[in-house]
Amino acid sequence: MPREERVPREEREEGAGASPGRAGAGDASGGVPAYVQADTYELTVNGTRRAVEDAWLGESLLFVLRERLGLSGSKNACEQGECGSCSVLLDGVVVCACLVLGVDAIGSRVETVEGLSAAGDVADIQAALVDAGGVQCGFCTPGFVVAVHDLLRRVPGADEMAVREALSGNLCRCTGYGRILEAVRDVQRSRAGSDGGHGAGA
């Protein structure tokens, strides 16, 4: 079998490759590793290049988003990857922002709940969560919005167990998940209704 190169799904897109930003890219052919030593670097967040200033390099992407870039929609419930409240898309893949070192996101595309909201990509998910009663204290809600969005764009017709498995990394302490599942079903129904082929895939 041929040796197949596997790269992160979105990295194939032009401009989203492994360039460490203003800290200076290592020249891959020259074999010299690049370093980030400065406390100021740039991230691409929600399609915009944002300067991160006076940062400690040990800060998580979650901390950088929340405390340095004013994007507090990603939440800090556990900071150990056990709750999903800080779910973001990193190069198009849903991850916990608390488990990404801020500097390690240099050169990657970071999309947060704020960016997805502004783009209107998740408006129906958000409306369904409110209408179905899937929001109580709301601390987990942005993470659910990101995770539901990630699932439904990949598997629009996910069945109930697939929905549960895809959301099993997002803890909610208020709702018992019943109204959240209801909201996902509502979105699936309305998307399938408005676009015949959309809901059929799996």
């Binding site: 994007l71 409306a127 409110v130």
Partner: peptide
């Protein structure tokens, strides 16, 4: 009636400021 939460939309957009979001 099953009125919708007045803070629901903000919460889904990540705009609702929790105590840990203050700055």
């Amino acid at each position: 009636a099953s009125a919708a939460r007045p803070d629901g939309a903000q919460k889904t957009r990540g705009e609702f400021a929790f105590s840990s979001d203050l700055w």
